[in-house]
């Protein structure tokens, strides 16, 4: 068994409105910054022991699909690194 960290990023699908990100963008503009868009995402770091990076990825994928993301509105990416 080896130790891995799976980093799961969960973001809204393109086209799903994100009022919190929009409010944040407007606040940056009020501070005088110039930007054309702001997207927010949630990131989860999962430390786990697994036989291989592939097995760590499979488990992280299952956790993401079962709880961390809602497929109706979210896309996700998973990166696995040895710890």
């Amino acid at each position: 068994m080896s130790e891995y960290t799976a980093t799961v990023t969960v973001r809204l699908k393109a086209g799903v409105h994100d009022p919190e990100a929009e409010t944040t963008r407007r606040a940056l503009e009020r501070l005088g910054f110039d930007l054309s868009a702001l997207r927010a995402a949630d990131q989860f770091e999962l430390d786990l022991d697994a036989e291989s990076a592939e097995s760590a990825r499979e488990r992280a994928t299952e956790m993401t699909e079962r709880l961390l993301a809602n497929p109706t509105i979210h896309d996700h990416d998973i990166e696995v690194e040895p710890r």
Binding site: H17, D18, P19, E20, N70, T72
Partner: peptide, 17 residues
């Protein structure tokens, strides 16, 4: 109910925030 899949879709942050 939506998160549990009893009904489709999801209820998320109000458009006005």
């Amino acid at each position: 109910g939506c998160e549990a899949g009893l009904t489709p879709g999801v209820f998320t942050v109000n458009r006005s925030a």
